[in-house]
Structures are given as structure tokens and as C-alpha cells.
Design a protein around this nucleic acid. Structure first.
Length: 278
DNA sequence: CTAGCTTCCTGATAGC
DNA sequence: TGCTATCAGGAAGCTA
């Protein structure tokens, strides 16, 4: 459920607490979350590494080290990364603890255990995490109406599904997909092949706009993050479509409806989001 | 290549 | 009150 804006928030909150810290010890409490290499090697490789920076690509986070390799992770549905003092009791569903040189701990907590960690040495290429298959970032210059039309213009699938496809655009999940389609005035079930040039243009405009809005809307202090604000991903104020089923549309007042597309619930306003007309 | 289904998981909530 | 069924969903893997 954390999507690009929430993952970016995690990065912004955690990076200052991690930079220049050395990992003194590693505790893998559930090896299921370690995707590469195996848990034993993972632990050995991380030990003694000094963190230089933290980057984000789509919904992936990467912790970079001074001497060797990088740690990549994906929070999937319910993953949480927290820097806590050693005195904090270990909470349920804590699967990984990195002990830091300042006495704090970077903990990974994930109720559903869908999240994954990968460690790659400098000479290793990452073809397994999925990051290499990502499409452009929403704010990248290459994300244009022409690009979207070229990639999707002849596809039969619904535009809502296409927005969730990380190989088309990186970082969009169910919440922001609904918001983007609302802002662009497009019904989520519209087949890509039915979209007009004006629709592609609106999408290319609204994708970065909504994602940047989301990053801004998520802005919070470290205290707020630890207090849980950064962990209730649906609790962003200002959403106009997601979770609004049965409520009046903020633009026209019509009661908003939901439809299931590709197994996911999509909320929309039938008045503001139309199928393209000839 | 694509559409559609399943898997992974637990907790919140709805219905009886 | 307590039980069971359903839903939530990111991404990969599978089948037809």
C-alpha cells in the first residue's frame, strides 16, 4: 500500500538517521523476507557496512554503502521501516533488525510478510528484484503523452490496470491510480485503445501532478512518523477519489461509485469521469 | 502476447 | 459473545 509518495516519505525521514552510521550487527528474525542471497550470507555481507545514502526508484528503496554493495528493499503492502532506540520493545512482526553504530536500530516490521530485501555486491547486476524492469518515474521528462500512447494505445486492458503496471510508469498503486484518473476525468474501466490524444495528454499531465501532490501531502516530522502517521498509508487528507465510494463527489456532488477492475476496487464519479466520446 | 486466475499473509470488519 | 466468511492489495507465477 505504500506507493511512491509514501516510500519517498520513508526515505526522507530515515535517510538523515542512517547516513554515516555503521551496521554493527544484523538480526534476521524471519528469513522469508530475504530474497537474495540467503539469510546467512545476507547477514555476513551487511555487517560492518557504513551507510552513505538512501535512494528511491518507484516503490523500491536502496541503502548504499561506502565500501561494498547495496541493500534494496520493497515494502509491498504493509512493510514499515523504523529507526528506534535499543530500549524500544520489539514489536510483533519485526522480521529484521540492523544494529547501528549510534546505538539505534533500523527495524523492519511487516504484518503480512510480503516485503522483500535484496543485497547486491558491486559486481552483481540486479535482474531479480524487478527494479530494472520499471518504467520511467512519474516526474521523468520521458513520461509524455506520446510515450503513454505508444506503450498503451493499442492495448485492450483498462487504463486503471495499465497505471498499476510498474513497467509502464513506476510507483503508482491503487490509491494514486484512482486519484490520477479522477483528476484526468477518465473512467477507470476505459480500454486503453479507446483513449483519445486529449486523454493521453491529460494523463501525462496529471500523473506527475498527483504524485508530487502526494509527496507534499505526506510531509511530516520524524515524531509524527514514529507516532504512526507515516504508517497509515490511506490516511492522507485531501484524497478525492480513493475511499470515497458512497460519498458525494467533491466537484459535482454526484454519489461516487466503485467498480472492480483487475481484481482491485476503483472508486470514481460517473459524472466527472467519462468514457471518451467520438 | 494477453487475459485471468492464484499465491503470499494477517487483521479488520461484516454477517449470523 | 463468538464464530466464520470476506476483503484489503503489490507483484510474480501460472495456465489457456
Amino acid at each position: 500500500m505504500p506507493e511512491l509518495p509514501e516510500v519517498e516519505t520513508v526515505r526522507r525521514i530515515l535517510m538523515p538517521q542512517l547516513v554515516q552510521k555503521t551496521i554493527t550487527a544484523v538480526c534476521v528474525r524471519n528469513s522469508q523476507i530475504i530474497a537474495h542471497p540467503d539469510a546467512v550470507k545476507f547477514k555476513e555481507l551487511l555487517q560492518g557496512q557504513t551507510i552513505t545514502t538512501m535512494s528511491r526508484r518507484g516503490k523500491f528503496l536502496t541503502i548504499h554503502f561506502a565500501s561494498e554493495g547495496k541493500l534494496r528493499l520493497h515494502l509491498r503492502m504493509t512493510g514499515q521501516l523504523l529507526v528506534l532506540s535499543a530500549a524500544e520493545p520489539i514489536q510483533k512482526h519485526t522480521h529484521l533488525i540492523l544494529y547501528l553504530s549510534d546505538g539505534n536500530q533500523l527495524r523492519y516490521i511487516d504484518v503480512r510478510r510480503f516485503g522483500r530485501f535484496w543485497y547486491f555486491k558491486n559486481e552483481e547486476t540486479d535482474e531479480i528484484s524487478g527494479q530494472s524492469r520499471l518504467g520511467p518515474e512519474p516526474t521523468d521528462n520521458s513520461l509524455t503523452a506520446e510515450y503513454l500512447k505508444l506503450k498503451l494505445g493499442n492495448k485492450r486492458k483498462a487504463i486503471k490496470e495499465a497505471l498499476l503496471d510498474q513497467t509502464i510508469v513506476a510507483g503508482i498503486g491503487n490509491i494514486y491510480a484512482d486519484e490520477i484518473l479522477f483528476a484526468a476525468g477518465i473512467y477507470p474501466g476505459t480500454r486503453c485503445s479507446a483513449l483519445k490524444d486529449s486523454n493521453w495528454f491529460r494523463l501525462a499531465e496529471k500523473i506527475p501532478e498527483i504524485i508530487l501532490w502526494g509527496i507534499n501531502a505526506n510531509e511530516m516530522t520524524t515524531e509524527e512518523y514514529l507516532a504512526g502517521k507515516g504508517r497509515d498509508y490511506r490516511n492522507i487528507s485531501g484524497l478525492r477519489a480513493y475511499g470515497h465510494t458512497g460519498k458525494p463527489c467533491g466537484v459535482c456532488g454526484r454519489i461516487m461509485e466503485k467498480v472492480t477492475i483487475g481484481g482491485r476496487t476503483s472508486c470514481y464519479c460517473l459524472n466527472c469521469q467519462r468514457l471518451p466520446m467520438e
